[in-house]
């Protein structure tokens, strides 16, 4: 008899059966609490004495982190985007995340404002790395995909009695 697997899983909400999953869940919830506390403290500080450079700096990192998580879910775990090939989604994630990172870099003064070369270097390094990763992963997945489809076709043929 099949197990009722609805009860399994790291985030299933049931008692964690080992220390690893308990600590993991703790890290996840702790991270969320940390971000909330940081945002609240920046909000209070900004309300009292205006938005300082260090507040903008930390806020830009928080936004970059949150946006990375959200974009990752939208491009790789959201059903409507799953119909696209992984390499297309990776490219989409890369482009949208680049826009967010550039905005955060500007807002948080990650790069010297009056130095276009710094910005150009940042952009080129990011986009080149992303293009390379997209290409390598795309080639590897395509190769495996062809093999899996061949096995599936053989399976169907066997079922039809061919």
């Amino acid at each position: 008899m099949a197990r009722n697997r609805e009860q399994d899983g790291f985030l299933s909400g049931y008692d964690n059966r080992n220390i690893g999953s308990a600590v993991g869940m703790g890290l996840l919830t702790g991270s969320l609490i940390t971000v909330i506390m940081l945002v609240l403290s920046i909000a209070v500080g900004a309300a009292i004495s205006g938005l300082s450079d260090w507040m903008r700096y930390y806020l830009s990192y928080i936004v970059a982190g949150l946006a990375g998580g959200i974009l990752q879910q939208l491009w790789f775990n959201y059903h409507p985007t799953m119909r696209f090939a992984y390499s297309a989604r990776l490219l989409g994630f890369g482009i949208t995340y680049y826009v967010v990172l550039a905005a955060c870099a500007y807002f948080g003064s990650w790069l010297p404002a009056g130095n276009p070369w710094a910005w150009a270097t940042f952009s080129i390094i990011f986009l080149v790395i992303f293009a390379a990763v997209t290409f390598i992963i795309g080639v590897s997945l395509k190769k495996r995909g062809i093999e899996y489809t061949e096995r599936l076709d053989e399976y169907h043929a066997k079922r039809r009695g061919e």
């Binding site: 697997r5 609805e6 399994d8 899983g9 790789f76 090939a85 992984y86 992963i137 997945l141 495996r144 995909g145 899996y148 489809t149 096995r151 599936l152 399976y155 169907h156 079922r159």
Partner: peptide
């Protein structure tokens, strides 16, 4: 998955995901 059963006769393609 925890949410789905599929009929293998209606699976037209398989794609590996990371």
């Amino acid at each position: 998955s925890r949410q789905a059963l599929v009929n293998l006769d209606h699976v037209m393609g398989i794609r590996p995901e990371p």
